[in-house]
């Protein structure tokens, strides 16, 4: 198992290298002289030249790339052009809120969606199945920001049960932290709940047709044992796959959600960086997200082997 994980990590290295190359090329893919782009519209020719030299843009591409990678490997993601703060520090400040939002959303999604899907498959064709699947279609079709504003209006402004927006770090207490995250998590999770409930239902329906489920019934097992011990675990591989893809998509969703609920996370940092053309920050964030994505994929593959003994590497 350990050797498998090590081999998988080794296999991610080329992927990360390609991502790094792409991220670094961002500056050059963007039209125009990178120094002019970075300096902005109001810069004088002297400013542009100063930036060019300070960033080493006058040196050959591969040498620039090499020294950039070298610095990254040493934990230096560069300095924000706009704030003059190290990019790693900027990301570090914003990591907490985004991680909190994603974790709460993910937990909420799994806890709600999987049982819904199981029940829908078990009662396939019944009223309860149709209600769940109806909700799923609804969840799919509403954009995050619509759901977000609706929830904020109903539960924060009208009922005043939950705060409208903002973020409180976990260090200041569990409830204040969670209180601020409930509405964003629900808004962001809607689509994923719908998606995962549907996948769970479809996979469970297929598994419930299998001969070994009939064997479980022949043994006299109860409905709960059949559904959760025998069926759900067999349905787990596709469900885990979709949850993994969900995590990757969640990153994009978090950007919008953080804007709606004014959460000072990476999403907001991304938007600000793009608006200010703060290239080092954009590069740092894209690199981080790619890294997380590769990591999630690795975790999914490891979970496969835990769930299904037939999968061996």
């Amino acid at each position: 198992m350990l050797s498998y994980i090590l081999r998988r990590i080794a296999a991610t290295l080329p992927v990360m290298a390609i991502v790094a190359l792409f991220v670094f090329s961002l500056l050059y893919i963007a039209p125009g002289d990178p120094a002019v782009v970075i300096a902005g519209d109001q810069a004088s020719p002297e400013d542009v030249e100063r930036i060019r030299q300070s960033l080493g843009l006058d040196r050959p591409f591969l040498i620039q790339f090499g020294s950039w990678v070298w610095r990254i490997l040493h934990g230096d993601l560069g300095t924000s052009i706009f704030t003059n703060l190290p990019v790693s520090a900027l990301i570090g400040q914003r990591l907490g809120p985004t991680l909190s939002l994603m974790t709460v959303t993910l937990l909420l999604t799994i806890v709600v969606a999987v049982p819904l899907g199981v029940v829908a498959a078990w009662k396939a064709g019944s009223l309860i199945d149709r209600v769940i699947m109806g909700f799923a279609v609804f969840g799919f079709s509403l954009p995050v920001f619509v759901v977000g504003y609706m929830l904020a209006y109903i539960f924060a402004l009208e009922l005043e049960w939950l705060p409208v927006q903002g973020y409180t770090p976990l260090a200041q207490g569990f409830w204040p932290w969670l209180e601020n995250l409930i509405l964003p998590a629900v808004a962001l999770g809607c689509v994923y709940i719908a998606l995962i409930a549907r996948i769970t239902r479809a996979t469970m329906l297929e598994v419930l047709q299998q001969d070994y489920i009939r064997t479980a019934r022949a043994k006299g097992l109860g409905q709960g044992g059949i559904l959760f011990v025998h069926a759900l675990k067999n349905a787990a591989v596709p469900i885990v796959t979709v949850i993994g893809i969900g995590i990757a998509l969640l990153i994009g969703g978090a950007v919008v959600t953080e804007s709606v609920f004014a959460i000072p996370g990476l999403g907001r940092l991304t938007i600000d960086a793009i608006l200010r053309r703060d290239y080092p920050v954009i590069q740092g964030i894209v690199l981080l997200f790619s890294f997380v994505y590769v990591l999630v994929n690795l975790m999914i593959d490891v979970v496969y082997t835990l769930v299904d003994p037939r999968i061996r590497y």
């Binding site: 001969d211 070994y212 037939r310």
Partner: peptide, 11 residues
């Protein structure tokens, strides 16, 4: 049952 391999839970 017929097809004993399919009749046992694979995991």
């Amino acid at each position: 049952f017929q097809n004993p391999r399919a009749a046992l839970n694979p995991i």
